[in-house]
Simulated scan of single mutants.
Amino acid sequence: MASSFDKFQKRRLISSYFSVVLSVFLVLFLLGILGFFIINSRKLADNFREEIAMTVFFKNDANDTILKAFAKELKVAPFTKSFVYVSKEAAAKQHTDIIGEDFMTFLGTNPLQNSYDIHLKADYVEKDSIAKIEGQLHKNPMVADIVYDKQLVNLVNDNIKKVSLWILIISGFLTVVAVLLINSSLRLSIYSHRFIIKTMQMVGATKAFIRKPFVMRSVKLGMMGAGLAILALIGVLIYLETNFPSLGIFDDPLLVSIVLLLVFGLGILITWLSTYFATQRFLNLRTDDLY
């Protein structure tokens, strides 16, 4: 009879440990995925901003010396991500390829102008920043016109702000749910030992002495769950990098390492706090309230 009861208790204990590890693993895995999504959503937003080109057209009087001097200014300018020089001959060829016929045959001349297509850094793709850059470039007397899609700039920035706000709200909500799920699993685990806790307290054991083994065990389970979550996250990242290299998942290994360390740290912190307060609750209960 005793042997059968011991086996039952052992199975229940293993089941309790497994549920805690599984809860920690699933919650931290989802939080890790969310963390990487937030990082890469910022990267995607920046890439989208940097795809918006500003075209600077030059007057026909601008010679090669002036154009080369302008290129040197762009190289050292803090707002420049990249730039490409487009001669009026190259622009004419592009137009011919697009419309399918040579428009210069009936015009008799090339009406296009030499230009630079400038891609700004993401931080400068703002209404006020672009206006300042535009004013600065217009100081060059050889600049004929500056063209960029103002409506697209405003639309992109407005949508990015809205998406960022919703990501923060969802992140906060999921974090709260994660803490509650892990806390519930650990409280159930501690609940099954409430009589042992009260018995130890009745024979004179201090609260810290009673609490220590429960906290240590939960932290170990949290480390196991966090370790599994990190392995699963690394697997997902390798899969994405292999199948979608354009995302550049491993372009910033420091950020990837920080997210993985945060996942591991959260596993330890949440299990430690949850176990501490759960054991404290049963330590403060009267014996009659245990039933």
Rank of each mutant, 00 (worst) to 15 (best):
T109P: 01
F58Q: 03
G35L: 01
L137Y: 12
R286F: 12
T206W: 10
N60L: 06
Y191W: 12
I98G: 03
A62G: 03
S23V: 08
S189I: 00
F106G: 02
H95L: 13
N63F: 07
E241Q: 12
M202V: 08
R49E: 04
I38N: 14
A53N: 10
S129G: 08
G227M: 01
F195D: 08
N183F: 15
Y124L: 04
K121G: 05
I268G: 03
S87I: 13
Y191I: 00
S184T: 12
G222R: 00
Q9A: 05
F18W: 11
F5Q: 12
S189G: 07
L255S: 12
R217I: 02
E50G: 08
Y276H: 13
L67Y: 12
L240T: 05
P213D: 07
V259K: 07
M216F: 04
K121V: 06
L168C: 11
D289H: 06
K212Q: 10
S16V: 00
L168M: 09
S274W: 15
V84Y: 13
V147N: 13
G235C: 12
T65I: 10
M216P: 00
G172L: 07
L120N: 01
E101R: 04
S115V: 00
K72S: 15
S246R: 09
F58N: 02
E101S: 10
K161M: 03
S15Q: 05
V24D: 04
P245T: 11
I130A: 07
L273F: 04
L254P: 06
V179E: 10
L67A: 10
E134Q: 08
K81N: 15
T55F: 04
V163G: 04
A62L: 01
G204Y: 00
V176Y: 15
F36C: 11
F83P: 03
D97S: 06
K43M: 05
S274E: 14
I146N: 14
I66M: 02
V56I: 06
L247A: 07
I268T: 04
Y124N: 02
N47H: 10
T287E: 01
T65E: 06
M200V: 01
T175L: 14
S4H: 14
F106A: 05
V147F: 11
V20G: 14
L233P: 09
N60C: 03
R281H: 13
T287C: 00
K198E: 09
N243F: 03
E101V: 08
V256Q: 06
L233G: 11
L254W: 07
M202D: 05
G32W: 00
N159T: 01
F25P: 00
I133V: 10
G222H: 01
K198T: 01
Y124H: 04
L107S: 03
